[in-house]
Each structure stands twice: as structure tokens, then as C-alpha cells.
Design a protein around this nucleic acid. Sequence first.
DNA 1: AGAGTGATTAACT
DNA 2: GTTAATCACTCTA
Length: 209
Amino acid sequence: MPGRRLGRRALGRDVHDVAPALLGATLTHAGVTVRLTEVEAYSGAVDPGSHAYRGRTPRTAPMFGAGGLLYVYFTYGMHWCVNVVTGREGTAQAVLLRAGEVVAGHDTAAVRRPGVRPRDWCRGPARLATTLGVDGALSGLDTTAPGSPVVLRAPAEPVDPARWRSGPRVGVAGEGGDADRYPWRWWLDGEPTVSPYRPAKPRAPRPGA
DNA sequence: AGAGTGATTAACT
DNA sequence: GTTAATCACTCTA
């Protein structure tokens, strides 16, 4: 039994509210449905790591749109990464979808990811995009529109907030303003699909520091 | 640990 | 119009 579809009202909230709410939510495209287990918030105005930090460009234009748009970018010469835009129009916020679990369309997913173990199908943002068949052609799409090829739904079964985990993003701490007040990264504790390279526990100070 | 890859962007002419 | 630096990753070792 699928959850209710997420509309402008749910996705138009502040990115730091929407990000944890997307844990356990599903995204469906081209025959595959993924349940999200790890996301990361980007807020252009206060986030030097955001593509939108230094203003609007043709590529980042969707980030400045209304909550519910898709922002898909290409990086490292071969990878697409999927973001869900949040907030009000003009605020340049988005949630990067980092990891998830395929819950429907296993056959299609297996064709898109030959030779990859199911657990790794969406373990990482570019893998998630590949498995879902999402690329730059979908950037700017309004997922809340009727007939959208990409559909976001609330968790089919409620997620216990006790399973939420969050942490500051590496390398962007201490920029002042909201940047050091909000967690950037959210994941679900105990999920095998969460990207392995993020510490699940507070990390000891750097060796040698 | 390193290579690979190409879109994007700002800084040039 | 051209160029060079950048990039939020994955894969093969």
C-alpha cells in the first residue's frame, strides 16, 4: 500500500524539515521504486558547497524553483545525481538523494545495474540515479504535476523518528549563520543501503590533528 | 589510492 | 568563441 503522494505543501517547507521527512519516502520513475535511506540538505544562500551559492545559472535554475521540482546535475564526467527541490520559489534549496533501497521493479533495476548486488543498486547518489533511469533530461521537472513521470510518495509505513540519524557535512562546518545550526545529512539507522563511507557514530578527532 | 570522464562556469580574447 | 579549472562519484585495483 503506497503512501500518499507528496505535493507542493509537503515539499515547499524548509529543506531542513523536508530532508528527514524524505527518509522512508519513495521515488518512482521508469518502472523502479526506491525507498530513500540517506539524503543531504543543500541551502544555496548559506551553503558554500551548494551549486546555487554563487547565484543562479542555467544549470542551477531549478534549485530556485518551487518545492517539488527535480534538480539533476552531472558530475565527475560520468555521474548524474538527483535532488528534490524544497522551500518556496526563489530560495534555492534542495535535498540530494544519496541512497535507497529498491522496493519495486527489481527486474528493471537488475537490467540497469548488471553485475551489481541489489544492496548496492542505490548505495550512493550516482548509483541511485542510474538505477532509477534518471538523467539530466529530467532536471526542472515538476514532480507534483499530474502525469509527472517521477512520483514522490510519503513512507508507506511510518518511520520511527528514533531511527533518524544526522550529522554535519564534512568540510562545510563553521560558516556561520544557519550552516552550523542545522544538520546537513540525514540517514536511517540500521539500513544496509546507506552509503558506507559516512560515519554512523561521532568520529574521533582526526589522527595527527 | 588513483584513474577516469565530460558538463559547467568564469575568465579570457 | 575559446580555454582552463572545477566537480556534491564510482570503479578497479
